[in-house]
């Protein structure tokens, strides 16, 4: 477990550095909105890293509980911003009180055959059935599609992170937490570095209509740097250095795309953030949009070639 200690010590050092830079900026340049937001983000990172660290101490059940809560907050943010009607009540009850806990229970039971199809198949069929009981035809297909989409993103995709614990990689037994640590670290670092590179060098916008804050400079710098970090951390994974680099590139590009997709939905709904629970970052979904898109593909890449 000395690997874990080294990893968290490294992250801690990075956060200390970030905190010092943030405070220095505030002291030298005076307070403004961007610097205040930067410091709020750094503070929130301390809380998030600490939370993940505590969850890691409890192993499989710790990360299951952590990501169950992440899913809950994400689903609540998603469905709050998605208009449904009274007729969807039963479907929403089933989403919150059945699909969400059942998915994490199945991961706890390590039942791959069921947790990989529960939401995409069985819940997919159950939701429109329950919604039809409401007897309301207005926007019926739209409403059921939105609830299903919310479940896929906030529950199914997020749950593939703790599902990494269920993979049996030869010669890697007992180290699966490191798969989670590597994925989260690389993807989130890519977000952070895209933000930094964008703020420092950003000029040309990638998708001005979808997400005005994303720039080509930020995208290239962030993804390349995070990919290098991912490759450099190959020693905590079952991958070789070049494999780690390729997979890091893959999850970083997926993460970027995830941010873009979720941002498109936000613009369509006319909001800037999904919620307000993480100071400086917005809602839970604002923080994990990239993970939602990267985790399922990462899970299946590892499962197909390594497990």
């Amino acid at each position: 477990m000395s690997q874990t200690m080294w990893l968290f010590a490294g992250i801690g050092l990075l956060l200390v550095l970030a905190t010092l830079i943030g405070r220095l900026l505030a002291w030298r340049k005076g307070r403004n909105a961007v610097i205040d937001n930067l410091n709020a983000r750094i503070n929130a990172w301390w809380v998030m890293v600490l939370t993940i660290g505590i969850a890691f101490m409890f192993g499989l059940y710790g990360v299951i509980l952590l990501f169950f809560l992440v899913s809950f907050y994400a689903l609540r943010e998603f469905l709050t911003l998605t208009p449904t009607r009274d007729g969807d009540y039963l479907a929403l009850v089933a989403a919150f009180y059945f699909a969400l806990p059942a998915q994490y229970l199945l991961i706890g039971l390590q039942w791959y055959g069921m947790f990989s199809i529960l939401i995409p198949v069985y819940v997919f069929l159950l939701m429109p059935i329950l919604s039809s009981f409401g007897g309301d035809t207005t926007h019926y297909l739209e409403r059921t599609a939105k609830v299903q989409w919310g479940l896929m993103i906030a529950v199914y995709c997020v749950s593939t992170v703790p599902a990494l614990m269920t993979l049996k990689v030869e010669g890697f037994e007992g180290h699966n937490l490191m798969l989670i640590a590597w994925l989260i670290l690389v993807v989130q670092l890519s977000d952070v570095l895209q933000y930094c590179c964008g703020k420092l060098f950003g000029k040309r916008k990638v998708a001005p209509k979808l997400s005005p804050s994303k720039t080509i400079e930020g995208l290239l710098g962030g993804v390349l740097l995070a990919t290098m970090v991912g490759a450099g951390l190959y020693w905590i994974t079952p991958f070789s250095p070049w494999q780690a680099a390729l997979i890091a590139l893959l999850v970083n590009l997926l993460g970027f795309a995830g941010g873009l997709v979720m941002s498109t939905i936000k613009r369509d709904r006319g909001v800037k953030d999904w919620g307000h629970m993480i100071e400086g970052h917005g809602g839970m979904l604002d923080r994990i949009d990239s993970v939602c898109f990267a985790a399922p593909v990462f899970f299946h890449v590892v499962r197909y070639w390594w497990a």
Partner: peptide, 18 residues
Amino acid sequence: TNLNRVMPKGRYLPLPLL
């Protein structure tokens, strides 16, 4: 905002929406 969705008329189990 939204309370009609948290607790629609005639229902007893609230939905945890914001």
